[in-house]
Design a protein around this nucleic acid. Structure first.
Lengths: 208, 208
DNA sequence: TAGATTGTTAATCGATTAACAATC
DNA sequence: TAGATTGTTAATCGATTAACAATC
């Protein structure tokens, strides 16, 4: 029913959310698309077009209420829902994710960490006892898991991409340096750090 | 002189690079844009257009030599240069970056870690002794630094965004959850993990 | 040579920007 | 009310896809 929103628009929404949170912190109550466009270095037209994909959040002659718009974008992004997140791979990256207080604030709740290394299993990370990957199947039966973060090496990621969907987990946040072959109803968001680094390298070579 | 390549194209280059590396590993010597398009789930036309921004790397009737094309893309991305990388913020994320062997393979050499926490300074991470942020100025005078990875919290990142350019460091790989206000000749590549997580949340809510 | 596949031009599609009537 | 600023339509710009002549 609802019209499909282009991914270009979706990619910009978290950025709006971030700037609006910043304005809130600074005690700013209202902002026009024109003012915001200067701060964010985009066109006012794009801001209005983007927002009007989801509804008319502004008011003629006034602009947008910062707090209200922030809340609306939060809703659009689904941040009013709670997401239970498990982390598969309790190395430094897994530990780093487990430690982000910010995530919890936005409804992403880390509920368990898993690893396949016997030297790591049983250790405590941020109050969590790292569980064996062999116990994942049972864990998933007894607990609601919304998102699995893949913070393990490529080879294990490929294996886990087979197992995890079978356990009813429908979303993967993938940090492994490979693309995953997944059933169509499983949602994946990739964070390819080495891609990012290569893009930086290109920019250095060619000057932005 | 050289025509400006759109960022959409640049974003795709590391992905090509990744797939070509994979094909090489599997011992595949040649590939047509059509075959590659099936593997990568893009159009053959786009592949040819993208590559021809940089030159004609293929051969009519034959396709592309995998190894050759891989090397060419590496050159385009500047991976044949060595980049000295320092990490500012030796928390879990900083440690995780310091530990990626892959980066070194592509010419990104971690050369030092810095932190402002006296409890962390002096500790050893992957063979590096974590240095005090107070020593960064001297370090930068005596050593070539191509990239500074920002793996510290937002507030420190804002402060460092002032200092780092003064030290002659021209590129920042930013993981802090904020945008940095930098001189125009300083190049920045942002990795906003929380943006990525919000996009995943949106996809979960709206089904891809 | 005949077949395959590129490099490149032309056509289409989608995203961004501009403009302005509606309205607070 | 007059001024400001949105929501939305129309115009432009750029990116993607299609088509095909060139050529290995």
């Amino acid at each position: 029913m609802s019209k499909i929103i282009s991914s270009a628009v979706i990619r910009r929404m978290p950025r709006y959310y971030r700037y609006l949170a910043d304005l809130m912190e600074r005690g700013i109550e209202r902002i026009s698309s024109n003012e915001l466009s200067h701060i964010m270095n985009v066109t006012a037209s794009q801001i209005r077009q983007d927002l009007n994909n989801f509804g008319g959040f502004g008011q003629q002659g006034y602009g947008y209420n910062v707090k209200e718009l922030h809340a609306e974008i939060g809703k659009i992004l689904g941040l009013d829902n709670t997401h239970n997140v498990i982390i598969i791979g309790a190395g430094n990256l897994g530990k780093a994710l487990a430690g982000y207080v910010q995530f919890e604030k936005r409804g992403f709740k880390i509920t368990a960490l898993f690893d396949n290394d016997p030297k790591i299993v049983g250790k405590s990370v941020r109050g969590f006892t790292v569980q064996s990957i062999d116990d994942l199947r049972d864990y998933a039966k007894e607990n609601k898991v919304d998102i699995a973060a893949f913070t393990m090496p490529k080879e294990h990621a490929l294996k886990m991409a087979e197992l995890v969907p079978q356990l009813g987990i429908k979303a993967i946040w993938n940090f492994a340096n490979t693309e995953l072959d997944l059933p169509r109803d499983v949602i994946v968001e990739n964070v390819h750090l080495s891609d990012s680094l290569m893009q930086l390298s290109y920019k250095i070579l060619n000057g932005e």
